[in-house]
Simulated assay, not measured.
Amino acid sequence: MATFKLEVITPLKKVLESEVERVILRTTEGDMGILANHAPLVAELAIGEMKIKFNGTEERFFVAGGFLEISKERTLVLADEAINIKDIDVELARKEAELAKQKLSKLKEDRDIAVMRKALESAITKVGMVEGR
């Protein structure tokens, strides 16, 4: 199977740089599959799972928003947060969800509510991915 260069970058670090066979991820328009020689594209990422197939195996990542850019040279995922599912601390994610729920009930400003809803959705998605939901 043909491969292409994938880079996954967050504000804190480069999470992955590798030749891959396939990527499946969630955009704001829905789930999307990427193979070698995909047409150029820019899309906004949603909170969700990213599956990367390389060397005959598949790795799963949690991705929390950002952007996807596909060009001839590479596929670039600029994510607000990207974590290999193996590195997710499910207990910490549960605590983050509880804290976000508590804070959400006390907020009044629309912007603060939107930020906290994203934090809550991220924490719930992490827990669900680890627990296989």
Score class of each variant (00 low, 15 high):
Ile34Pro: 00
Lys5Ser: 04
Ile47Trp: 05
Ile124Pro: 08
Thr125Gly: 08
Ile124Gly: 04
Arg94Cys: 04
Thr3Lys: 06
Glu91Arg: 15
Leu12Gln: 10
Lys103Ser: 05
Gly56Thr: 13
Lys51His: 07
Val15Leu: 09
Met116Glu: 10
Asn55Asp: 08
Lys126Trp: 14
Glu121Gln: 13
Leu99Trp: 03
Lys101Leu: 13
Pro11Phe: 11
Asp31Tyr: 14
Thr3Asn: 02
Lys108Arg: 15
Leu25Gly: 04
Glu81Met: 15
Ala43Thr: 03
Asp112Cys: 06
Val77Glu: 00
Glu121Asp: 13
Ala100Ser: 13
Gly132Trp: 11
Val130Cys: 13
Val23Pro: 01
Leu104Thr: 08
Ala39Ile: 08
Thr28Ala: 04
Lys14Gln: 04
Ile88Met: 08
Ala119Leu: 08
Glu59Asp: 14
Ser122Phe: 08
Gly65Met: 06
Lys126Asp: 02
Ile9Ser: 00
Ser105Ile: 15
Asp87Trp: 12
Lys108Val: 14
Phe67Lys: 07
Gly33Asp: 01
Ile88Asn: 05
Glu96Leu: 14
Asp110Ser: 10
Ala64Lys: 02
Thr3Glu: 04
Lys106Trp: 04
Arg74Lys: 15
Phe62Pro: 02
Glu121Ile: 14
Glu59Trp: 07
Lys53Asp: 02
Ala100Tyr: 11
Leu76Val: 01
Glu109Leu: 14
Ala46Leu: 04
Leu6Asp: 00
Lys95His: 09
